[in-house]
């Protein structure tokens, strides 16, 4: 199931300032070429978390792309995102796309729980990277801030609270459907709602 209803067919990345935090120079070049190809013009390349923090402090950044694995003498990308989200600064809630290499499911959960918007697995293709950037344009998830997590709402499928647990949100719906409020629909009316067909009048 796609996360966005309808992907953008056209876009403009030339006004956006992008921060790329990637330890490997060769990978920086690779992702940089993709971003310039998408029309990006303002790209800050950083190799370490400290460099990235300086860029964030002195520039208005619109998108962060970060590798989960940074250099041997640096913390990882997850730590960077967690610190960013907890910074309390104006840039704390910026959209973040994380690039990961070897990805056991525990690492995906780790990335999600660090507060990133989307995770892209290596090797990164231009198509997948662009798709994730454009998804952010249609991103409707609020940022959740609590004791254990700061980041985009991880529950993007609104299935209601788990059975037997009271919802914590004003818009959480009860799992119980309740009594019908009008006459039941006939099966053909239901079919019509789900699968509209052309009719000859």
């Amino acid at each position: 199931m796609p996360l966005v209803a309808k992907p953008l067919a056209k876009f403009n990345l030339s006004q956006s300032v992008i921060l790329l935090l990637e330890h490997s120079r060769a990978e920086q070049d690779l992702y940089g070429q993709m971003l310039f190809g998408f029309g990006g013009k303002q790209l800050h390349r950083c190799q370490t978390r400290e460099e990235a923090k300086l860029v964030l402090a002195g520039n208005q950044v619109d998108l962060i792309i970060v590798d989960a694995q940074l250099g041997p003498d640096d913390e990882d990308g997850y730590t960077f995102v967690r610190e960013l989200r907890r910074s309390g600064a104006g840039f704390a809630f910026l959209p973040v796309v994380m690039i990961t290499g070897h990805t056991p499911s525990s690492q995906i959960t780790f990335a999600r729980d660090s507060g990133v918007h989307f995770v892209v697995r290596k090797p990164v293709s231009p198509g997948v990277l662009l798709e994730r950037i454009l998804w952010i344009a249609q991103e409707a998830r609020p940022i959740i801030e609590c004791e254990t997590y700061v980041g985009p709402d991880r529950r993007f499928q609104r299935l209601g609270p788990p059975k037997g647990i009271e919802g914590r949100r004003a818009d959480d719906m009860d799992m119980e459907v309740g009594e019908p409020e009008g006459p039941d629909l006939h099966q053909d009316e239901i079919d019509q709602l789900l699968q509209p067909k052309r009719v000859a009048l």
Partner: peptide, 16 residues
């Protein structure tokens, strides 16, 4: 305590 922030990304505006 849980705070819910509705955010509008500058990136989203710029892309469109």
């Amino acid at each position: 305590e849980v705070k819910v922030h509705k955010v509008q990304y500058r990136l989203a505006r710029q892309l469109k």
